[in-house]
Design a protein around this nucleic acid. Structure first.
Lengths: 211, 211
DNA sequence: ACAGCAACCTACCGGACGGTCGGTAACATA
DNA sequence: TATGTTACCGACCGTCCGGTAGGTTGCTGT
């Protein structure tokens, strides 16, 4: 059968390729996804797809940068305009989480597969990731200086934050019992306020090391 | 012939194979790891390795079960003997986190690569994972009933917990600025108590929705 | 002394994959 | 009508991978 699509200019097609490829790679993993898989999902052949991309690695690299662009534009940049540090943190967590839950925007997660890139590409992606990480940790440091933070290591805390947010992509499903907004708000609540009530039974108050 | 026992060296070698394979797969990913890679790391050839394993997928499946066994033995089982729910949660987070940081025990993380298994194998692993998850959520429910939990969705909270813990494997490095115990204790503190101090400056108290 | 078996090896196979080459069909421009 | 460009396709190539066949070596029990 021949599907007929008339309106498909270059730019739209490119974006469609990124989006489709990102979804498949997100689901099956980079190595397990063949260029053929991506091409077929787009209704074309491998050779046809190579008209748009210059290689499998380059496609991954482009997608990752696309995802990081989104992150900068929708999370980091708007956050920088919020004056209050606590509110800024709240915004970053919530908007980052919502970016992850958006199926198409799930691109961000591909940041995992850095090992599949060439060393040079990997270094570039890692640098961009680190920039974002450092900004977030800096925000926590700021809060700590204001005395608004619990006594926690800000590096570890940043990783915990990103862990919760990135893990969203593993469990959040559109149409599940939680909406994207609800999931994001849960993460904000847990990250900022923790699980336990401020005033516990007041029986034991010591951090226990294990083993 | 039930009395027939496999010779002793077999078992040691088998365990060594699991541990070595797990480390490589953890670092490079399942698909990017060839059977040859694993064999070479063990100082043998591919055909030699096939003396011990029955296939690449089966190896992965065995490793995953091995990791889940560890999780049951070192986290779930001991936890069940702790009476106080809060202390039980504290123990589970800390011991699970430490299991993840132990280089060799890093096996647990392989739980990601379920898609690489056959459907039947995948179902079995997923079932075991879900068992663990359900136990953890049940613990949170218990705490909630006791009124010791903040107002959070226990399912989302469990995922957040596991997100933080599993993410450890991405950033924790032996010999870094934090010891395994310190990292585990940071996670416990953040998960249970949150990032922010109980009493904030009490200036603005509004939840901001994002964009 | 020798059978038996565990623990490897070299050599090879079929298939899948990333990538290329030389087309072609449709449309725009002039 | 001639020409160029964009968007694709079928066929093919070299490589590497999972897996197998059929050995060889060396220990062990009898």
């Amino acid at each position: 059968m021949k599907a007929q699509k008339k309106s498909a200019p270059n730019n739209d097609r490119q974006a469609e390729i990124y989006r489709t490829a990102a979804q498949i790679i997100l689901r099956k993993g980079y190595d397990a996804t063949s260029v053929n898989d991506i091409a077929n999902a787009l209704g074309m052949t491998k050779a046809g797809l190579y008209h748009y991309i210059s290689g499998k690695k380059e496609l991954l690299f482009d997608i990752m940068n696309f995802g990081l662009d989104e992150l900068d534009e929708e999370v980091a940049a708007p956050a920088k305009e919020i004056l209050d540090a606590e509110e800024r943190l709240r915004f970053m967590i919530a908007s980052h989480a919502q970016l992850v839950t958006r199926g198409q925007g799930a691109i961000t997660i591909l940041v995992d597969e850095v090992t599949a890139l060439t060393p040079a590409q990997g270094r570039k992606i890692t640098r961009r990731k680190r920039e974002y990480f450092d900004y977030m940790r800096g925000l926590l440091d700021e809060l700590k200086n204001e005395g608004r933070l619990q006594d926690v290591d800000t590096t570890a805390a940043t990783f915990c934050l990103l862990g919760m947010i990135n893990w969203l992509s593993r469990w959040f499903r559109q149409g599940g019992s939680l909406t994207a907004e609800q999931a994001a708000s849960q993460i904000v609540r847990i990250a900022l306020g923790g699980l336990l009530r401020p005033g516990p039974p007041a029986s034991k108050r010591g951090l226990r090391a294990v083993k």
